[in-house]
Design a protein around this nucleic acid. Structure first.
Length: 433
RNA sequence: GGAGAGGUGGCAGAGUGGUUUAACGCGCACGCCUGGAAAGCGUGAAUACUGUAAAAGGUAUCGGGGGUUCGAAUCCCCCCCUCUCCGCCA
């Protein structure tokens, strides 16, 4: 959520920055300002009435203390209808506020000044490239062929169980998936300074609102059950990413500045509706309704946000380097960035069998956009309460990493060579049928 | 799931309709005092919104919501959480 104070003070600046995204959102600024104005007007009025009521009530109390019953009763009669006026104005203020906030929640973040201007993925500049496309003395197979010949994934039976877009890993496929998860968690938690956590896979709506998935993109997620009525959670949703539970861990807290930076890594499955995804990438493992991912989350002081983003990308890159994969890092342009992000780097790994790059990581600094939505603050050294920057990045997403790995390291005989750092986990050097 | 006891500021703990703008205490910050400390004395200290050039000021917050009243920490209703015991379960 943007800072209403910034919208008030610099509405034209906010509109311009919003327009560099998909466009259209800037149109709501005037409406927000009008509701905000109305709210403050009603508030000023109702609060002075409340002040009056408090004053009169004290006076009545004093009169009763002095046994001046008549005077007290006279004053009671005078203030009798004050309550109704207050209630009516209160409602106006509350209505204006909830109207304003409903619009604010649908407003995306402002892009950081360093983000390239652009309309779509085609305008994303390449930041750097690691390695080269490998050469093969044979025609590299696609992961679908490899998975079938090596019996890594049973596509047909997965469809029987859950329909298209779901995977049944088998034998070495299941082991490879597990090995990759454990390898990544170990690396991030021992060498990169992240604390490993394992969160719930279902969360209440407020967590999705907190990171910006709700209310605007509600139809993309799986609602599964009514949550505890008790806890006032509303419906529970399957998490689309570990970002949803993990970034919300400290929601509604006031952190001490010494607690920062907070760094978490977490493995979770991710569930996505991917509405209308039929077509490109439907076959195989590129786009599925459930996939595994190791996610990185940071909560940091605002002044550290962008340095930490660079470090996070480097942490994710390290995985691909150790897996011996060729990849490129791109900087998303204003028009291609996600809702909550102020700046995003994507990492795309080369998949020889596809002849294309696959997005396996997306690292974003959301600045204080999410912290505001979840009311997460910290008390700075100067005693001020401030919103921290919250960053999230995949480190990395599975399924696609799996694809790149088997396609890159496939051999002429149809086997797949396991990268050195993964061998202690998989307990083999080579995957054969 | 059942029964009971609780929920008040950083902590602890009074307060059953009106000088409570939440007592007393501990802890905290600053000042005085001291050679330095302790003790003592004094002052200050929550969060949000609003307001202002900045202040001052105003409103709300005693687990949450609603109600009664001129006025609610206090009375009424609903809900939540914590603790203890019992049951059930992996």
């Amino acid at each position: 959520m943007l800072d209403i104070a910034v919208i008030r003070k610099q509405p034209e600046f906010v509109k311009e920055r919003l327009a560099t995204r998909h466009g259209g959102d800037e149109a709501h600024i005037n409406e927000i300002l009008a509701l905000d104005e109305h709210r403050r007007k009603a508030l000023a009025e109702v609060e002075s009435l409340k002040a009056l009521r408090n004053k009169v009530s004290r006076e009545i109390g004093a009169l009763l203390g002095q046994k001046k019953l008549d005077e007290a009763n006279a004053m009671k009669a005078e203030t009798k209808n004050l309550g109704d006026k207050i209630a009516a104005l209160d409602k106006q203020a509350v209505d204006a506020e909830s109207g304003r906030d409903a619009l604010m929640l649908r407003l995306p973040n402002l892009p950081h000044g360093s983000v390239p201007l652009g309309k779509s993925a085609e305008d994303n500049p390449e930041v750097r490239v690691h390695g080269e496309k490998p050469d093969y003395t044979f025609q590299p197979k696609s992961h679908v062929e490899l998975c079938e010949s090596l019996k890594l994934v049973d596509f047909a039976r997965a469809t029987k169980l859950s329909g298209s877009g779901f995977l049944l890993y088998t034998n070495w496929g299941a082991k490879l998936e597990r090995a990759l998860i454990q390898f990544m968690l170990d690396l991030h938690s021992t060498e990169h300074g992240y604390t490993e956590v394992s969160p719930p896979f279902m969360v209440g709506e407020q967590c999705l609102v907190g990171v910006g998935q709700f209310p605007k993109f509600k139809d993309q997620y799986y609602g599964v059950a009514e949550g505890d009525v008790a806890a006032n959670l509303g419906k529970l949703y399957l998490i689309p990413t570990a970002e949803t539970p993990v970034a919300n861990i400290h929601r509604e807290e006031l952190l001490k500045v010494e607690q920062l930076p907070i760094q978490y890594c977490a493995y979770t499955p991710c569930f996505r509706g991917e509405a209308g995804a039929a077509g490109v990438g439907t076959r195989g493992m590129i786009r599925v309704h459930q996939f595994d991912k190791v996610e990185l989350i940071k909560v940091v002081k605002p002044e550290a946000g962008y340095d930490e983003l660079e470090r996070m990308v480097a942490n994710a890159e390290r995985i691909l380097q150790l897996m011996g994969l060729h990849y490129r890092v791109i900087s998303l342009c204003t028009g291609d960035m996600g809702f909550g992000s102020a700046k995003t780097y994507d990492i795309e790994v080369w998949a020889p069998g596809q002849g294309s790059y696959l997005e396996v990581s997306s690292c974003s600094n959301c600045e204080d956009f999410q912290a505001r939505r979840m009311n997460l603050r910290f008390k700075d050294a100067d005693g001020q309460n401030k919103f921290p920057h919250i960053l999230n990045g995949s480190g990395t997403a599975l399924a696609r990493l799996f694809v790149a790995l088997v396609e890159t390291h496939q051999q002429a005989d149809g086997s797949v060579l396991v990268p050195e750092p993964l061998r202690p986990y998989l307990k083999t050097e080579r995957i054969t049928p």
